Simulated assay, not measured.
Amino acid sequence: MSQLNITSHQEIVHFPKDGKPTLAKNEWQIWGGSQDEGGLPDLEHGAHKVLVPFTWWITHHHEADVIAKAKDGQIGVWFATDDDILKHADVIEAGKTVWPLVAAHFPIFRDGRSFSTAALLRSRFAWSGEIRAIGDVLIDQLLQGARVGFDSFALRPDQNLDVALKQFDLYSVTTQNSWRGARTTRATLSA
């Protein structure tokens, strides 16, 4: 796996299912999996929480120290756009018991496959924990992301966080089902 450099603001937009959007400190470093020939970054100094690639987790999820660090809230997982999460349902089911956070990576804002990853995690895997959007995440993606299951967003550094918070109040009525709840309006037929 090549070195991955995902940058974002030092704060994330956090929008829990039954809450209001807020800014929160981004405590998670995103690791590409290639440093130290496959070993985890140093969690004792600097950032104490790391998101590891799902492909790395598949290889290392049986290791006692990896499981212990995940249970301790130090290791979460991020999914690449080409990760076949349905193929690895058993690994995800086991991971649900230890992962404090999962993320889906947007390599470029035009690539929407991570929306499907979030929707699958919510609907098929009944993931109830935090799902974060990482990578090339723009303000324009927040509403759609929140509807399919994302509840935190690590925006690209050039995005304005104050403007981002206002995105969730743009529309008061939705006409489609969403992870956040049923439709707010229903069409009625008159006889």
Score class of each variant (00 low, 15 high):
Leu138Ala: 06
Ala94Trp: 00
Val98Gln: 07
Ser114Gln: 11
Asp111Asn: 15
Ser123Ala: 07
Asp82Ser: 11
Gln141Ala: 01
Arg113Thr: 13
Gly135Tyr: 06
Ile85Gly: 04
Phe106Val: 13
Gly95Pro: 01
Trp99Met: 03
Asp84Asn: 10
Lys87Ser: 11
Gln144Val: 13
Leu101Asn: 07
Ala126Lys: 15
Ser114Tyr: 07
Phe109Val: 13
Phe115Trp: 06
Ser128Thr: 15
Val102Ser: 03
Leu101Met: 10
His105Ser: 13
Gly112Val: 13
Gly145His: 01
Trp99His: 08
Thr117Arg: 09
Ile85Met: 10
Lys96Phe: 00
Val91His: 01
Gly145Ser: 02
Leu138Pro: 02
Gln144His: 11
Ser116Glu: 09
Phe125Ile: 08
Leu138Gly: 06
Glu130Cys: 14
Ala104Cys: 15
Gly145Ala: 02
Glu93Lys: 01
Leu143Thr: 09
Leu138Asp: 04
Arg132Ile: 10
Arg147Phe: 06
Trp99Lys: 03
Phe106Tyr: 14
Arg147Gln: 12
Ile92Arg: 00
Asp84Met: 07
Val137Gly: 03
Leu138Arg: 12
Asp111Gln: 14
Leu138Phe: 07
Thr97Asp: 13
Leu143Tyr: 09
Asp84Gln: 10
Gly129Pro: 05
Pro107Asn: 12
His88Ala: 08
Ala119Tyr: 04
Asp111Arg: 13
Glu93Leu: 03
Ser123Trp: 04
Gln141Val: 08
Ala146Asp: 05
Asp90His: 01
Leu121Arg: 03
Ala146Gln: 04
Ser116Leu: 11
Trp99Glu: 02
Pro107Ile: 10
Phe106Asp: 11
Leu138Tyr: 11
Ala146Met: 04
Ala103Lys: 05
Leu120Pro: 06
Ile134Gln: 04
Val91Glu: 01
Leu142Ala: 02
Phe125Glu: 02
Leu121Cys: 06
Ile108Glu: 15
Ala126Thr: 15
Ile85Asn: 05
Trp127Phe: 13
Ala104Ile: 12
Lys87Tyr: 11
Ala126His: 15
Phe115Leu: 10
Arg147Met: 08
Phe125Val: 09
Asp82Met: 10
Leu120Gln: 09
Pro100Glu: 02
Arg124Ile: 04
Val91Ile: 05
Asp82Arg: 10
Ile139Ala: 04
Phe125Trp: 05
Gly129Met: 14
His88Pro: 02
Leu86Asn: 12
Ala94Gln: 02
Ser123Gln: 09
Leu143Cys: 11
Ala133Val: 08
Phe125Leu: 07
Ala119Ser: 08
Arg124Asn: 08
His105Phe: 14
Pro100Ile: 00
Thr97Ile: 12
Gln141Asp: 02
Ala94Cys: 01
Ile108Cys: 13
Ser123Phe: 07
Val91Tyr: 00
Ala126Tyr: 13
